[in-house]
Design a protein around this nucleic acid. Structure first.
Lengths: 197, 197
DNA sequence: AGAGTTCGGAACTGATTGGTACAATACACG
DNA sequence: CGTGTATTGTACCAATCAGTTCCGAACTCT
């Protein structure tokens, strides 16, 4: 009955994700978003209400895309040993950083920022990180060394690996030449070498 | 020759550290700082030039105080086994978080933020984190299991533990009830259990 | 006591923040 | 081919940002 939208909503969210991913929630200004999304103020506020709502949509999309990809890798049946799936995830994370992609992980960056004082954003970030942890637990179930762990122990180990993942992603973002990114895979290997309790 | 300053510079920096620690560099507004430091705009700019310079002084102070305390713990001769020193550091970090102190680590928060695009801030943060790593290496030298490691292997292990430390501190700040803070000590214990290469 | 300086505090600046109001526009439907 | 409706783009808004200016007050030294 009226004029149709000139842009694709999903495209816009994808582009917004790029901006938020690079700059973080607070440091992505509205002009930044408008340029990255290729639309104007009026369109953005009509379609997405406000900056925070847009960010929540972006987090949702990130969870579908990036977290989903990680989960797929962590449950890949073509790699029978779950330990190798986890190592592969860390290798890939380190590799993109070493290739010059210093965006890190959108969720990890958000977790370190002041925007966590907003309960809705905090809930979305928590959900995403729990998705990664769930993927890690799936992989641990497929590890010959760890599959016999009880639920609590498996969850604890997944938490440890998740902590390591966050540290790696923060360091990847920081541009700091500490060498920790390069040796991160050794670290996870070390975590997985240790025998179950 | 003139009117003396009504505040102590070191006190002011300490108070500024409190504000930056809680809110982060970007999110600490000038009114926040003025209130926390108990002085007015004119005084602040006369004494500290600008916000960034003040933050660099705060980072310096943090390195002396917090990083210094960590290093002291990591080289404490009363704990002969360096592994226990490291575990103690993580226990303490987790404990303050579980007691409700969600400030995390000033350096780790800064490392995850956009302020790292400033080279002076990045350099100061790097120096602080390298201080922590140096402390970890010192402790590893006092570990019966690890003291025979060559320099590269010890440094790699220290990097791994540092990565874990950053992840823990970010999670402590995030308020997320992921359970990773509670089990973090297990994680480091796991890292230290593994035999040397 | 008087001269010389520095400090403290408030008013102000220009830029930028996220968000809104509204008019012009372009399309779908009848 | 017009009418109605949703989108678009621009101009605007108040609030806040870091930083500056300036004058009166307070103190030290002679």
């Amino acid at each position: 009955m009226a004029r149709p939208r000139e842009f694709d909503t999903d495209d816009a969210i994808r582009n917004a994700m790029g901006v938020f991913w690079e700059k973080g929630y607070q440091d992505a200004s509205l002009p930044d978003l408008l340029e990255g999304m290729g639309l104007t103020r009026g369109s953005l506020y009509k379609a997405f209400k406000d900056k925070k709502t847009l960010f929540l949509l972006v987090l949702e999309h990130y969870e579908d895309a990036a977290v989903g990809a990680a989960q797929a890798r962590l449950s890949d049946p073509e790699i029978p040993d779950g330990r190798e799936r986890i190592l592969g995830l860390f290798e890939a994370s380190a590799a993109v950083a070493l290739e010059g992609d210093h965006r890190g992980c959108l969720l990890c960056t958000a977790a370190a920022g002041f925007e966590m004082s907003d309960p809705e954003i905090a809930a979305a970030v928590q959900q995403g990180l729990e998705g990664i942890r769930a993927g890690l637990e799936t992989a641990l179930r497929a590890s010959p060394v760890h599959h016999a762990l009880d639920d609590a122990a498996r969850r604890a180990l997944a938490n440890v690996i998740l902590t390591h993942y966050i540290g790696l992603r923060v360091l990847a973002r920081s541009h700091l030449p500490l060498g920790a990114v390069e040796t991160s895979v050794q670290g996870v290997a070390r975590l997985l070498e240790a025998q179950a309790a």
